[in-house]
Design a protein around this nucleic acid. Structure first.
Lengths: 247, 247
DNA sequence: ACTTTCTGTTGATCTGTGTCAAAGCGCGCG
DNA sequence: CGCGCGCTTTGACACAGATCAACAGAAAGT
């Protein structure tokens, strides 16, 4: 069986601004037509909570534009971000009813949703959709476990460098700019959100960003626009071993 | 389509000491017979590395007896345990060739293995096996994300309490002893392994275990045998909100 | 233009956990 | 038996990052 690598529904999901990378694309069977019928769009404002932890979640979705975060919360209010949803990312847990964490829009965001039940029925009938979803879930699991290494063992400076590396890589792979070694990108998170993702406080984040700037590893055009003169230096600051992706 | 909840191969996998909870059980189709043919057992000694990060891994397996750990390593040698394999747990990444982390036997361990290629072929043919595997992967993802909260935001004492809670819960659900509120179990990890799992040093682990003992939250029969007089107290020490499982 | 609010920076101080070091078990092995 | 080795405990001290606090700039509302 060949695995396709493109969008969830069709090669030309004409009314989606992006081609969802979520599930399998190149199939034009009846089931996909079925699924088209239960597709709908939702948009949310920056700061809005899309789903609360424990809520019944009756859809799965992929991000069309904007950014959202997955956050877990303790009784006393401490929070830890456990995932970041960027355009083309998939969210939703087929087979599960309750959301395991809060999903919060960081910027204004548009999502392409599918009602869960029909989606699950499609999965049961067409194995390759399930396969693709399993692959995606394994990717998320890998990412989560790398993040565990970061949270448990990296210093504040390494954490910041790692986060910047990831954002930079995502940005570069979407915009595929020519120059691979020096690049400028937009950091779509507040210092507070970064702290939340990295298991730090916002003050520590601010200090370490300043330190990286002072040491010439990064430059700040404005507070949210980062220029990296030499990606290799940032990578070594991150403390990762041989990085798979680009760079 | 009904989802089964028992073992990977059959209800009576006669030569496996346990019933694997790994995949789907109650099916008696030809495919399962096929799979029986590629099943084999491997045992490893305590301390032995079963797979190295980056190695080609040509099998999937479930743990029959014993314990293993999943560990990620940085260039400079810092390590973070990202998962714990207890009896009936599944390990392996269908569709992936390389292991993403080291798998190390903590105790002597026996695993029931299946050659990966035939296993994948089975998955492609029988959707419910893939479904089950997706479910299991989602469970692992949930566990990983809860662990991220622990690593990023919990204090050393809370970390210890959380770990004990998890081991206790696993133990209780396997042995289903009558008394739910007070129980004794075996902690199959060295202080060093605990530290590795919790993102701490072994000295801190030792100190916090002593502190919990002094405060009467736990009692130590010997260094590896823990008695919890009142599970509720341990739970509140762990800082978790409303716990799903037993307890 | 003025205030308010939100975001980010920087400083001073405190504290939890890491680091380094020593010593106490318990157990297998010669 | 006693020796050595792996695991654990405990102590003294250092330091990274948290906490508390003040302030600066930018955007938004009045």
């Amino acid at each position: 069986m060949t695995m396709h690598d493109a969008s969830i529904i069709s090669q030309d999901c004409s009314d989606c601004p992006i081609r969802h990378r979520a599930v399998c694309a190149k199939c034009e069977s009846d089931e996909l037509t079925q699924l088209e019928e239960v597709k709908y769009y939702r948009s949310f404002q920056a700061g809005q909570t899309i789903v609360f932890q424990g809520d019944r979640m009756d859809f799965v979705a992929s991000v069309v534009s904007g950014i959202a975060t997955l956050t877990q919360t303790m009784e006393d209010g401490r929070t830890q971000m456990v995932g970041l949803l960027l355009p083309s990312d998939f969210v939703g847990r087929p087979g599960r009813n309750e959301a395991a964490y809060d999903v919060v829009a960081t910027t204004d965001i548009v999502m392409c949703c599918f009602r869960k039940r029909p989606f699950e029925q499609l999965m049961a009938k067409t194995p390759h959709v399930g396969q693709r979803l399993l692959e995606m879930t394994l990717d998320e699991l890998d990412a989560a476990r790398e993040w565990m290494l970061l949270l448990g063992r990296k210093t504040a400076r390494e954490k910041i460098a790692s986060l910047l590396t990831i954002i930079a890589r995502r940005d570069a792979s979407l915009n595929l700019s020519g120059d691979a070694n020096s690049l400028t990108f937009n950091l779509p998170l507040t210092r507070d959100a970064m702290a939340d993702y990295l298991g730090l406080t916002l003050e520590t984040v601010s200090r370490q960003v300043s330190a990286l700037k002072k040491d010439g590893v990064i430059e700040l055009k404005d507070k949210r626009t980062i220029h990296v003169p030499d990606m290799q230096i940032l990578l070594s600051e991150a403390g990762d071993d041989a990085d798979g992706g680009i760079f």
